[in-house]
């Protein structure tokens, strides 16, 4: 890519908005996923009996079952959340940046 073009895009307010919004969004979601997963795996490492607690008195189903399912569901939902926002808001911004480049 040509130097002038790079400079031009870098100074485009839409580009600045795209980079700052997307970076902070993806960073937040990455941290969320890491926190959820490491909380899960470190709970097991430090106190395995915690997830072995029965859901209700007399039930064989343990807390670990819904928690594990919730981690799987969370991973799916969080990719959906990112994809939805990126495919609308971020792609709209990208399109604006591309159109501005094309005009010249």
């Amino acid at each position: 890519m040509h130097k002038d073009l790079v400079e031009k895009i870098k100074n485009d307010p839409n580009y600045k908005e795209l980079v700052s919004k997307r970076s902070s969004f993806s960073l937040k979601l990455t941290i969320a996923m890491l926190v959820v997963y490491f909380a899960f795996i470190l709970t097991i490492a430090f106190d395995p009996s915690l997830l072995g607690t029965p859901l209700a008195a007399g039930s064989v189903t343990t807390i670990g079952i819904p928690v594990g399912m919730a981690v799987i569901l969370f991973a799916f939902v969080i990719t959906g959340v990112y994809t939805k926002r990126a495919n609308s808001e971020f792609d709209d911004l990208t399109k604006k940046i591309k159109d501005a480049v094309k005009e010249h």
């Binding site: 097991i44 594990g68 990719t79 990126a86």
Partner: peptide, 23 residues
């Protein structure tokens, strides 16, 4: 239950790939 723990480990890399690597 250990089987579930193992499979969850294989899944959680995917969101990270999406947020950081894919695009």
């Amino acid at each position: 239950y250990d089987g579930l723990i193992y499979s969850i480990g294989f899944l959680v890399g995917w969101p990270i790939i999406l947020f950081m690597i894919a695009e």
